[in-house]
């Protein structure tokens, strides 16, 4: 029941954000900024109840740890801080390799020791967008990731699986605090 309520409220908020400025029946702050008409509100309630019935088992798995707002602030800090710096470095790196054509590729295996599905998804997406790496495959039993690395360093290959600090820096520590 709680899963249904959480899913319905979240989808209703997304509907309200996407239809703001549709009418002037309900005005909160300003006539142009936060205003809706009655028809949009009614259709939004009906649609979000339908979405809540269908998607409650997919959206909420075991517990409600992501409902904690501290985790969302940490997530926003992660996006603005280390993630954006990593993306800027990644693009300068790709520009250098496009112009000079020097590559030294390989596929390596890392084991980041994350347990939850959400955490491993966030780590894989972060790895894809940060310098020189692209996640290719996943070992679902142990949550190990296979990474395509565009510039393999010699000293990283001595130990298998490869140490996380060469691939993704401090990202597993951040994600463990956000999603576990």
């Amino acid at each position: 029941m709680l899963a249904f309520v959480v899913t319905t409220i979240l989808s209703f908020i997304i509907y309200l954000i996407l239809t703001t400025g549709s009418g002037t029946d309900i005005v909160i702050l300003n006539k142009d900024f936060l205003s809706w008409s009655f028809e949009e509100i009614i259709i939004g309630i009906v649609l979000s109840v339908i979405v809540g019935i269908i998607a409650k088992k997919l959206f909420v798995k075991k517990n409600f740890r992501m409902a904690n707002p501290i985790r969302w602030f940490r997530f926003i800090a992660f996006i603005i801080g280390p993630f954006f710096v990593g993306m800027a470095k990644a693009n300068i790196d790709v520009a250098y390799r496009v112009i000079t054509g020097k590559i030294n590729p390989g596929i390596v295996k890392i084991s980041p020791n994350l347990k939850t599905d959400l955490g491993i998804t966030m780590l894989a997406n972060s790895i894809t967008l940060t310098p020189g790496t692209l996640s290719v495959d996943i070992d679902e039993d142990k949550n190990d990731l296979y990474i395509h690395w565009i510039n393999v360093k010699k000293e990283a290959l001595k130990k298998k699986p490869v140490d996380c600090k060469y691939i993704c820096g401090q990202f597993p520590r951040w994600i463990r605090r956000i999603a576990e």
């Binding site: 590559i103 030294n104 590729p105 390989g106 596929i107 390596v108 295996k109 290719v136 495959d137 296979y146 395509h148 393999v152 290959l157 298998k160 699986p161």
Partner: peptide, 9 residues
């Protein structure tokens, strides 16, 4: 992968 030095997969 072309010219790969290592391929764990």
């Amino acid at each position: 992968p072309v010219g790969a030095v290592v391929d764990d997969l």
